[in-house]
Design a protein around this nucleic acid. Structure first.
Lengths: 259, 259
DNA sequence: TTTTAATTGTGTATATAATACATTATAGTT
DNA sequence: AACTATAATGTATTATATACACAATTAAAA
């Protein structure tokens, strides 16, 4: 879909390559300056925001579609990715039909009302946890922007994407209780106060700094480094990284995480 | 699909009414004689077992499809039903293609290899918890049997249905830790030893009878009745039922259940 | 009628984990 | 060297989980 010709093929013959009526939407979380972020796409012309998504190719698994979409938007592979829910209300893309004219604008070609793109879509939702600094957001061919958006300042999105986001957020919070997945949002080296901030942001409440430290260290999934981070006129916090071995062990066992 | 004519229409024109490439599979759990059960369908002629499933009608939500399938197999509505995973491997119904001849047998009509039924299927998995005694299993038009099967004696199933079942079981166990969903498997009146047996079966390990009782009662979701169950030459256990109000409150809050 | 065996119902003592809060250590500034 | 802000560690208290003991109850057997 890199040139216009391929785009026209896509419009006319999409279901030849993709499964019709099925899509994948990705909620890509990042963490920066103590704020939780989501990656959003902005469509050309109509200038509306939505979650990165796409179709499932006929020879790839739904998981692989999500990975592909994620790679296209972020440039990253091998990241924490998890299916969380499938959205199957028949009217969930009602607004898509309403935007039909605008679609024709975006594609610079008239798209007939009975085109497969305006048919009903069931969408499989995935959420991903990525290291903010490693991501170079890339818009897709239909979008002019792909940007991080603070979770507290998400605008109205197309279709049911606000609901999908809310559900992903709920899932993220829930899983944070049981698995140490939050680490995927941090860089390789981080301080305990930073980790605390992450957990407080995800869970939406304050935690006791001292008890947090005690507990997180008791899981033995952190390696204390011989480095510190200078953060101003006071004691410099120690840097930590995972013990990947212990970490994956903890993931499997799902230690009695957490608060 | 009650007569042959409609079945032929179904074969030739299925996607007119259903979404192609998408199906729903239901793992219906029951509990009887201290054993966890699943409801299985047996196909005519080929005599192989599989999970009850079906297609998604164009005007119904995926949730509604699951409800409809459940109602058709069990006669029940208003039961505990939950989507748990979507299975999207491209080869997950490979064996279906292999059974093509047998399919033609079942339908008593030749089905061409390029028929939509042999195309790739992405399936949304649901699990349901039902009261065993209330269910009158009904086979569908393709099946000659619909029966309860002990979870420890499940035969090899068609497609990836064994995997789907395993995943549902895992999900049931996990959720049992956090929500009192297990009650949906019991009749309206039950004894604490029966409830204990249910939890032990689901979790796959022994629990301390006395501590279990203390904890379960501490949640205040049970009503002690003025009745007992006679079960032999020893003390008769008291019957309990839910406090539905407290129960639904507990479900929302997801009290720090459990073991 | 008494005994017996099996199972329910309740209690308590101990171990483990969660929480609250106090104190000391340290980097940089004044 | 004193000051300030935050990191790091420790302890006392409370709550929860676990282990285990014993009395109560039922119906069948003696």
């Amino acid at each position: 879909m890199d040139n216009k010709l391929e785009m026209i093929d896509f419009i006319e013959e999409g279901p030849k390559w993709f499964l019709p009526n099925l899509s994948v939407d990705c909620v890509i979380f990042g963490f920066h300056k103590n704020q939780l972020k989501v990656l959003l796409n902005r469509w050309k012309k109509v200038e509306g925001w939505c979650l990165p998504g796409g179709y499932v190719m006929r020879d790839e698994s739904v998981d692989e579609s999500a990975k592909r979409i994620l790679k296209e938007r972020t440039g990253l592979s091998k990241i924490y990715l998890q299916q969380f829910y499938t959205f199957g209300e028949p009217d969930r893309v009602k607004s898509l039909a309403m935007e039909r004219d605008q679609f024709s604008q975006i594609f610079e070609k008239e798209i007939k009302p009975d085109n497969w793109m305006f048919d009903r879509m069931v969408s499989v939702g995935y959420f991903a946890l990525v290291e903010y600094s490693k991501v170079k957001p890339k818009p897709d061919t239909l979008s002019d922007k792909c940007e991080w958006c603070d979770i507290t300042a998400v605008p109205q999105l197309f279709f049911d994407h606000n609901q999908i986001l809310q559900r992903a957020l709920k899932e993220l919070r829930f899983q944070t209780f049981h698995h140490p997945i939050g680490f995927n949002l941090l860089p390789e080296k981080f301080t305990l106060p930073e980790l605390l901030g992450l957990y407080e942001t995800i869970l939406g409440r304050k935690l006791d700094r001292r008890n947090f430290q005690k507990k997180i260290l008791s899981f033995n999934i952190l390696k204390k480094l011989d480095e510190r981070r200078n953060i101003g006129p006071h004691r410099a916090p120690t840097l930590y990284s995972f013990d990947k071995q212990q970490y994956s062990k903890a993931m499997k066992e799902g230690l009695s995480f957490m608060f």
